[in-house]
Design a protein around this nucleic acid. Structure first.
Lengths: 198, 198
DNA sequence: GAAAAAATTGAACGATGTCTATTTCTTTAA
DNA sequence: TTAAAGAAATAGACATCGTTCAATTTTTTC
């Protein structure tokens, strides 16, 4: 078959991303197959390469979509919340990771070849999620410590990430930890206490 | 070719693990190939299946070897150290992960099929590394808080892991963090301060 | 309406993990 | 000593994967 006009370039891209994200969410990164995605949308594997150029680019785009969903999820959880907003953000971190287990895990399982930085677009998405936490922490920190918000947010994100990662990959289960969320909240509280916040 | 007697079963197992760990350390989990390991030791792929039964079992054994090396590295770094032992352990965490980048990353990239818990042997190795941290924290905590050592060790390991993970996977670079080790130490200090230790 | 450009395909390639029938060697038993 | 039993190693087949590319068909352009 040759050229067809079933979908515009953009429609096709969206079609692939939609089905691709469904696949990734269902089977996980290790079993994800670009061929399978092509088959399911009724196109051939070559078409995916036409649109995305490579497997890596496709996966980066899929992970980008996960980041989009994650950001929306986080903000929705915070919307209207008055107290304990940082705790809510931590809960949202865990709930998203657990609820979108495979897609969330793929964010970290997939890595571009060494020396290949992700696109600016992707970096912006990561920065957007971080930005939410920076904002929340800045609102909590005592006046005059605003400059600490970014470094602290990075570090607390890493701490929460570690707890969430261990919760999902079984490390915590191995070690008998039954309340990863509580532990993560406690560590964040410890850090904020140092700055006289919380 | 049929049966040969170049190596005993144990020698063969060791041969595969040695070359396999070398491969894993060089090319990383994503590019690791059991076939390639077989080729390099002069056996066929079938032999690896004879000895290990499956690809998953081989990788679990390889990761187990990484844990062995890691534990030895950690204890060697702590040996003879009088002060700031926990800081030394954090540095060791990062140094090992950076120095054995691919092998360390494989510990988390590789996952057994869902519902398949790792062998007792593997869990023991994870517990052994954790045990070192439990011991160090117990030595620092005020008297009467000994029961907090294990939960705190789990949580601090997760925090340090998150920092180390973000350092290696580029997240920290994206966010402008230039001193991941310092940030990790700070978070650990925050937690210890809550317990009146440090 | 012809030429140029764009899009889509499917076959080919070299890998991978996995499995099995077969061959070969070692061990056991008569 | 020799034949049968058992264990170990292999080659090859299978299905899959990402990747590439010549060929084909449609759309666009002039």
């Amino acid at each position: 078959m040759g050229r067809r006009s079933d979908h515009s370039r953009e429609e096709l891209r969206e079609l692939i991303l939609e089905e691709g994200h469904r696949q990734l969410s269902e089977v996980g990164f290790a079993r994800f197959s670009a061929r399978e995605v092509a088959k399911r949308i009724g196109y051939s594997i070559g078409t995916i390469y036409n649109v995305f150029g490579s497997y890596d680019a496709l996966l980066l785009a899929l992970n980008g979509r996960t980041l989009d969903v994650w950001l929306a999820f986080l903000e929705q959880r915070l919307a209207g919340r008055e107290e304990r907003r940082l705790d809510a953000a931590i809960e949202a971190y865990f709930d998203f990771a657990l609820g979108c287990r495979h897609a969330w895990t793929a964010l970290y399982d997939f890595r571009l070849p060494e020396g290949t930085p992700p696109s600016q677009d992707y970096r912006d998405k990561v920065a957007a999620i971080t930005g939410v936490i920076v904002r929340e922490i800045a609102a909590i920190l005592p006046p005059g410590l605003g400059g600490e918000a970014l470094p602290l947010a990075r570090s607390l994100l890493a701490s929460v990430h570690g707890h969430c990662f261990f919760a999902l990959n079984g490390t915590f289960a191995m070690l008998g930890e039954t309340d990863p969320v509580g532990a993560a909240k406690a560590r964040v509280a410890d850090a904020l206490a140092r700055f006289g916040a919380g």
